[in-house]
Computed example of a mutant assay.
Amino acid sequence: MAAITAVLARYPEDIIRDATHPATGLPIRCDFLPSVAEVYRECEARMQPRRIAWAVEERRVKQLQERAEFERRFGRRR
C-alpha cells in the first residue's frame, strides 16, 4: 500500500479520484487490488491528454512570443 500511495501522491487529486473511482477506475477492471504498475499506468493514461494540452499551449505561447519578437525587430510585414 505504501508504494501505491507513493505513486498516487505524484498526481493531481482529480486524476487520483478518477483512477480509483469504483465505477469507472481501476477497481472495475481489477479482480484484486491493483499492482503498483497498474496504478502507475492508469494514472499516466489519464494524465496523457492533460500533458498534450500543456504542450500545445506551451508551443502556442512560444510561437506568439517569437512572432512578437520578430515584429519588434523587423516591423509588421504585409
Rank of each mutant, 00 (worst) to 15 (best):
I52T: 06
I16P: 04
R59P: 00
E13D: 15
W54R: 09
R50W: 10
V61C: 03
R60Q: 09
A45C: 09
W54K: 01
R41D: 06
V61H: 00
C30D: 07
L8E: 09
R17H: 08
I52S: 07
T5F: 15
E57Y: 07
A3T: 12
L33R: 12
K62C: 05
L33D: 06
R29E: 09
Y40Q: 02
C30E: 11
R10P: 06
L8I: 06
A9P: 04
E42R: 05
R41E: 12
D31V: 03
E42I: 01
F32T: 14
A6Y: 14
Q65G: 11
E71G: 01
G75K: 04
E71P: 00
R51V: 01
C30Y: 12
R72F: 00
R51Q: 02
F70I: 06
R51K: 09
A37Q: 05
F70W: 05
A3L: 14
P22I: 10
H21Y: 10
D14A: 15
L26P: 04
I16Q: 08
I4M: 15
V36Q: 05
I4C: 12
K62Y: 14
T5N: 15
M47P: 00
D18P: 07
R46H: 01
W54T: 10
E44M: 11
A53D: 03
R72V: 01
